[in-house]
Amino acid sequence: MNQSQTTSRLRYSVFYFLVYGFMAYIIVFFPLHCMRLGFGNLQTALILSAGTLMTTLGSPAMLRAAHYHVSARSLLIWSSFFSLFAFAALNLCSSFWSISSLWCLCLFAHRGSAALIDAQAIRDGHKHKQDSSKQSSFEASRLWGSLGFVVFAFLVGLLADIGGQKFTFFAGLSMLLGLASWSLVASKSLRPHPASFDFETSSSESFFSKSTYRRRFSILLLISFLVWASHAPMYVYFSIYLSALGWTNSQTSLAWNIGVISEIAVFLLFARIQARYTLEGILKLSAALTALRWLTLYFFHNFYVILFSQVFHAFSFGTSYLSSVKLVFEILPDDKRDRGQGMLIMIGIGLGSLVGRLIFGFIAEGISLASDMNELFIGAALCSALAYFLAELFARKPTP
């Protein structure tokens, strides 16, 4: 690895550490913040769903703006600071509409600025990788994102138990301040209008014009949609559910961190796993173990069983995410891979999460006690089971 690649990896590593540190606030602590403000189950789900929608729209909007209208460097700086100021204003509000509006603005700018780096990091990692049995630069950099989540969730959970829930807000603010500062330094290395932001291809064909990859890519998108939809009860109500069971902030952070530590292990070992098994097989196993994870949470309330179930995050997110991203590169021709990655994020993480949160939010409105939120996981298991059957269909490669 030359000096340029080392510098690039370090830059991306710091970026992912801060981005996923803030993600810990979004997933672990923001639902608890909504609960403290007195919002109901449906209101909390609606706020998080609106945030997911803005996250989904933020990525393509910023990428398109960077390609056609504004320098990516300027856009990165302005969007990073905008998300910081929108988040800071949250501390001054308590009404449903003001919290919803500011949360949407914050996540739109935050996800949009992150997308400017994501596209370049994935392509650079794919370009620099020479040995399929070794970890790519993207996987190594993304690993620091998982570490950022673990460090943030652990320290903030511990300090919140000591100093109160208000501390979590200022911890989230510090992550966004770090990202804004990072953008001032790292934006100099960002290409003004990178080729990886190519929304138009050299071919006049539509994106789905080739039947050779249209069917498989469509199934992959549907699998991603279902898997992410199944995560909705986890990302919206898991922290609230554990709090209702009497768990402290530190214990809740521990549960989330076990999942992320398992994810880190997968990121470290994935190159070896991929060398032994097909990506299609890994995708099938991921969907099956995701269903098992949700069934475990549905049937068991025991402290240690719930902690153990978090190990399955290595598969429900780790191997599922990595295999899907790599399958896009395997299925699609080169001039459609970047848009394919964008569609995978939009349909899976975006639309799947949004629809899942809305559906499970309406279901949760009929659950009177937060300690009964585990009932939502039976629906999540059904979504994952359907994803498994589609993964089985996906694994049947078309004959030439």
Rank of each mutant, 00 (worst) to 15 (best):
Q3P: 00
T6S: 11
T7A: 13
S8G: 07
V14Y: 02
F22A: 12
M35H: 09
R36F: 08
G40A: 00
Q43A: 14
L48D: 02
A50C: 14
R64K: 10
L75K: 07
L75T: 00
L76N: 09
F82D: 03
S83Q: 05
A86M: 14
A86Q: 04
N91A: 15
N91V: 08
N91I: 05
S94A: 13
L105Q: 05
F108D: 05
R111S: 13
A115F: 07
A119W: 06
A119I: 04
R123G: 02
H126N: 12
H128V: 01
K129A: 11
Q135E: 13
S136A: 12
R142C: 04
F152W: 07
D161F: 12
G164N: 04
Q165I: 04
L179G: 06
A186Q: 07
A186T: 11
S187A: 15
K188H: 14
H193G: 05
F199L: 09
F199K: 00
F199I: 02
S206L: 09
S209P: 06
I223K: 06
I223W: 11
A232N: 10
P233S: 02
Y237H: 09
F238A: 10
Y241S: 05
Y241F: 15
A244Y: 09
L245W: 07
G246P: 13
W256I: 00
N257M: 15
S262F: 02
F270Q: 07
A275H: 12
R276N: 08
T278M: 01
E280W: 11
G281K: 10
L285M: 14
S286P: 05
L289Y: 06
A291Y: 08
A291I: 13
W294A: 08
T296Y: 02
F303A: 01
F308V: 13
H313M: 11
A314L: 08
L322C: 11
S324D: 08
F329C: 02
L332K: 01
D334S: 09
D334E: 14
G340D: 00
G340N: 03
Q341F: 00
Q341H: 02
M343Y: 07
M343L: 14
L344C: 03
I345C: 07
I349Q: 03
L351H: 11
L351T: 15
G352V: 08
G352E: 11
S353M: 15
V355Q: 06
R357H: 09
L358E: 10
I359N: 06
G361F: 06
A370V: 03
A370P: 07
M373G: 14
N374G: 00
F377G: 10
A380M: 11
C383P: 03
Y388A: 03
L393N: 12
L393K: 14
F394V: 00
R396N: 13
